[in-house]
Computed example of a mutant assay.
Amino acid sequence: MLIAGHAIAWGVACNDEIVVGQGAFENLIRRGFQPKMLLQHEGEEIGKWIKFEEDDRGLLCVGELSDSPRAKLARDLMETGKLTGLSMGRKKGIARPIASGVSFIAVMLDVNEISMVDEPGCPAALLDSFCIGGQ
């Protein structure tokens, strides 16, 4: 099963008090970064991210779920509408304060994982589509 969604949206305040700017992932994408694909930020990997692209909305991620039991759980949760977003795990970036307790990240240096989640840390980081059997 292929999935696609945005792991972050440009200019949207996230619950970890960061705002990410467009272009922040250019260097990571160019270097071929490969964060883990997890379910709810825990457990075994459930697949592999195969493409990243910055678009007008945010960081678009395309991935392929494996056949593991945990990936099958993710698929079931997604198909029933209980898994609707993406969320970046531990991240490191070049940040500057923009408001009390909020930082703007212009350059992302590392992201260890991107998870399929029921409540994304960035409210606009949503799964956009999925297809079974490459359709």
Rank of each mutant, 00 (worst) to 15 (best):
P35Y: 08
P35V: 01
L38V: 05
H41N: 09
E44S: 15
E45V: 12
I46K: 06
I46C: 06
K48R: 15
K48P: 04
W49N: 03
W49D: 01
I50F: 00
I50H: 00
K51S: 14
E53F: 01
E54C: 03
R57A: 10
L60P: 08
L60D: 07
C61H: 03
G63D: 04
E64T: 02
L65H: 12
S68Q: 02
R70A: 05
A71G: 01
A71P: 00
A71H: 01
K72I: 13
L73V: 05
A74L: 02
R75H: 10
T80H: 10
T80M: 11
G81H: 00
K82E: 09
M88I: 11
K91T: 14
K92I: 15
K92C: 12
K92M: 14
I94R: 15
P97M: 10
P97E: 14
I98C: 06
A99S: 15
A99W: 07
A99I: 01
S100Y: 12
S100K: 14
G101A: 02
G101T: 01
V102G: 04
F104Q: 04
I105M: 12
I105D: 04
I105Q: 03
I105L: 05
A106L: 06
V107R: 14
V107K: 10
M108A: 13
M108W: 12
M108S: 11
D110T: 05
V111Q: 07
V111E: 04
E113R: 02
I114L: 12
I114C: 11
M116R: 00
M116F: 07
V117R: 01
V117G: 10
D118K: 14
C122H: 05
C122E: 08
A124E: 15
A125R: 10
A125N: 03
A125W: 09
A125S: 05
L126A: 04
L126K: 11
L127N: 06
L127D: 02
L127F: 02
D128A: 14
